[in-house]
Amino acid sequence: MRDEGGHRLREVPAEGAPAVRAEVRPDTEGGWNIHLTVERFRFTPESVGGAAIPGRGHARLLVDGKETDRLYGPWRHVPPGARSVTVRLHADDHTVWAVGGKPVEATVPLGTTPPTATARTTPAPTTPTPSTPTPTTPAPAPGRTVEIAVTGTSVQPPPSRIELKRGEQLTLRVTADRADTLHVHGYDRELTLTPGEPGTLTFTADRTGLFEVETHGSELLLTQLVVR
Rank of each mutant, 00 (worst) to 15 (best):
A176Q: 03
E163L: 06
D188Y: 06
G65W: 15
E4C: 05
P13F: 09
I148W: 02
P80A: 08
L182C: 04
G73F: 12
Y72T: 09
T145L: 04
G152Y: 10
G167S: 06
P103K: 08
A52K: 13
W32M: 01
V174M: 01
L201C: 03
T121H: 11
G81K: 13
V48P: 00
P26T: 08
T118L: 13
G30E: 02
A106Q: 10
F203S: 01
A176W: 03
S218P: 04
A91T: 14
D188Q: 13
E11R: 11
A106V: 15
S160R: 15
V227W: 07
D206F: 08
L201V: 04
L110A: 05
P103E: 07
G49C: 09
L170A: 01
T171I: 02
W97Q: 08
A141K: 02
R88A: 03
P74Y: 15
A149C: 00
L71Y: 14
V99C: 03
T192A: 12
P45E: 06
T118W: 09
E190Y: 14
R70M: 14
P128F: 10
T132L: 02
E190M: 04
T192I: 06
H58I: 12
P114C: 11
P79Q: 05
T192W: 05
H7C: 00
P130T: 11
A117V: 10
N33A: 02
D206S: 12
R40C: 05
V24T: 04
I162W: 07
T129D: 11
V63I: 15
R25W: 04
T137H: 05
P109E: 10
A51C: 04
D64P: 10
L89G: 06
L170W: 07
R173T: 09
P142N: 04
V38M: 03
I34A: 02
T129A: 14
E105S: 13
P74M: 13
D92L: 11
P138V: 02
E190A: 06
D64F: 14
A124Y: 12
R40V: 09
V155K: 00
H7Q: 03
G81C: 11
T136L: 07
R2V: 10
R161T: 15
N33K: 02
S84V: 12
I34R: 01
T194S: 10
Q169D: 03
V96S: 02
R21C: 00
A179K: 15
R189F: 06
V96E: 02
S84R: 14
G65Y: 15
